[in-house]
């Protein structure tokens, strides 16, 4: 699709039986004193354990199998959407692709310049002014001076914060903060673009403006992987959908086919409200629902 920069070799993503489990530490597992005490007592009896979708290890250390033998390949021109219930492993997969979560089970190969949009406030310091955050962002990405200046001008005009740009971010309304975060996060032009669903947040006026910028960003990327609950958006942007369930790929195929099957399945599972909910989630949901189910 896009062949900008002919000297860059073709990017690709390849996962072979990639599995990832992570510890969820709570209660006394966080305490060294209690952990030591417990290991002494361990021989006496074993804890009863919890049964919340993961193998239980010890009393307060929950080992969650977030990704389970995931295999897929992606090459230039592919726009892949990740769908599935909350807790199906979409965000974990995105974080693993971004290199934040690591696992030695199976293999994950990513070739190409990668940029991940995981959190609108990534690397931002709320006590710094908007402008200082822009400069910090330039440092994070090790930009040359000329580009840092261009970035500052670009973000300043896009975010449209007026005089607020020179005030600390903690004084911003949530909408303003998202605008700044969005403007920054969408400035790079990577070969591989990884996006979490947060980019759907923001008011309607901003949405239109944001969409133009996103479209531009997506057009520049060779490979895009995005998680979203909004089927219309996924239908429009994606060529391929990975349907995740319990950390596994349940279905992988052309966007329209997988989405239809998915919606049917969701409608079948929980009679009436679910599909409707699934559709309305598209506008405005920014991941708060993540906490409610699973």
């Amino acid at each position: 699709m896009s062949t900008n920069g002919s000297e860059r070799d073709a990017p690709f993503i390849r996962l072979e039986n990639f599995s990832l489990s992570f510890p969820v530490l709570h209660g006394s597992a966080r305490s060294l004193k209690k952990s030591l005490l417990k290991s002494v007592k361990r021989s006496v009896g074993r804890g009863m354990g919890h049964q919340v979708g993961g193998a239980v290890h010890g009393d307060d250390v929950l080992l969650v199998q977030a990704l389970d033998h995931v295999s897929f390949e992606a090459g230039p021109g592919e726009r892949i959407g990740l769908i599935g219930h909350n807790g199906a492993g979409k965000s974990t997969l995105l974080r693993a692709l971004a290199g934040i979560y690591e696992s030695s089970v199976g293999s994950l190969t990513l070739h190409g310049e990668t940029h991940a949009l995981l959190d609108p406030m990534a690397g931002m310091n709320r006590d710094l002014t908007g402008r200082e955050n822009i400069r910090l962002f330039a440092r994070y990405n090790d930009l040359e001076r000329v580009h840092a200046v261009a970035l500052e001008r670009d973000v300043e005009s896009f975010a449209g914060l007026g005089a607020f740009i020179d005030l600390p971010v903690r004084l911003y309304s949530s909408g303003m903060a998202v605008r700044l975060g969005f403007a920054l996060a969408t400035a790079p032009r990577p070969q591989i673009l990884l996006m979490d669903e947060w980019f759907l947040a923001g008011d309607q006026h901003f949405q239109d403006k944001a969409e133009a910028r996103l479209t531009d960003l997506v057009a520049h990327a060779d490979i895009m992987i995005v998680t979203s609950h909004s089927m219309p958006i996924l239908r429009r942007w994606c060529t391929r959908i990975l349907w995740m369930e319990h950390g596994r790929v349940r279905m992988d195929g052309p966007a329209s086919i997988v989405i239809d099957t998915y919606l049917d399945a969701v409608a079948g599972e929980t009679p009436a409200p679910a599909p409707a909910e699934e559709r309305t989630k598209g506008n405005g949901s920014d991941g708060q629902d993540r906490l409610t189910s699973s």
């Binding site: 670009d154 896009f158 790079p188 032009r189």
Partner: peptide, 9 residues
């Protein structure tokens, strides 16, 4: 794209 090519050192 307002940004010049995103060249990183």
């Amino acid at each position: 794209s307002v940004m010049p090519a995103w060249t990183r050192k």
